[in-house]
Design a protein around this nucleic acid. Structure first.
Lengths: 124, 124
DNA sequence: AAATTGTATAGCCTCAATATATACAATTAT
DNA sequence: ATAATTGTATATATTGAGGCTATACAATTT
């Protein structure tokens, strides 16, 4: 499986694995029902402890991307994009809420927030 | 000096002190040039190490609210509200940028972001 | 000169995060 | 059946950051 681990940056191994697999799933390179390499096989490939791959898979399972079954293996779940979207929306809401709180304390208006939002994200 | 320390919540003591003094300054209860209690005096009042009050004062100094001079004491700086506002703006910008990035990845439009911004901050 | 004030360096303690080892349970393959 | 393979559960370092403290030092005031 095509996974690159860089010990250079401080990002934990299990997160590097999880996010790369997550990307593959979201991009359709790993399809629904497809079996992932077993935790031990992947661990051997990457020369790490298989408990670390387990940690990565747990992360993916928690986020609804895969499902694991004792003795059988781990498989890509049917992707519920709606749920994914909802989760991202929640994250965005908390960011916007903090932005609003900060603005209120500093006497910055909601209108300015809207302008900033465009300014910061429009420049692409 | 009127400062309440609660060991109950997990907020560190030095931050509790810093934020309470920050509020007093922003509300005008502590005025420009006014001397703060010395680190040691405040520490004795609060029954903590004076290195913790120093930590709090350092925080305040870093944020431009006070200035300290060896042998003399610590004093409230002239409040440059413009600078304070700019700093808050930067913080807000980074929040909005992350919100934008997340939205892009999840296929959420900028328009929706604007709606969310109002929804989250309008409902008060 | 003594008292008071802030500064600097170093240490300790705790806690969470990361990665691991090892024993256990379920399924599959032979 | 039974061996091999797969995931699970529990316990154990290890590390690093955060928070608080102690103590020695420097500058100013009294």
């Amino acid at each position: 499986m095509n996974i690159n681990i860089s010990n250079a940056n401080g990002e934990p191994i299990y997160l590097q694995i999880a996010s790369q697999i997550k990307t593959m799933i979201l991009e359709g390179k790993l399809k629904e029902g497809e079996m992932l390499p077993s935790m031990r096989v992947l661990a051997t490939e990457l020369h790490i402890s298989f408990m670390t791959t387990k940690r990565a898979y747990e992360e993916l399972e928690r986020d609804g991307f895969i499902e694991s079954y004792t003795g059988r293996g781990s498989f890509v779940k049917a992707q519920n994009l709606e749920i994914y979207r909802e989760e991202q929306l929640k994250h965005i809401e908390s960011l916007l809420m903090e932005a609003g709180d900060t603005a209120r304390k500093a006497g910055i208006s909601i209108e300015e927030l809207h302008e900033l939002l465009d300014l910061v994200n429009g420049g692409d």
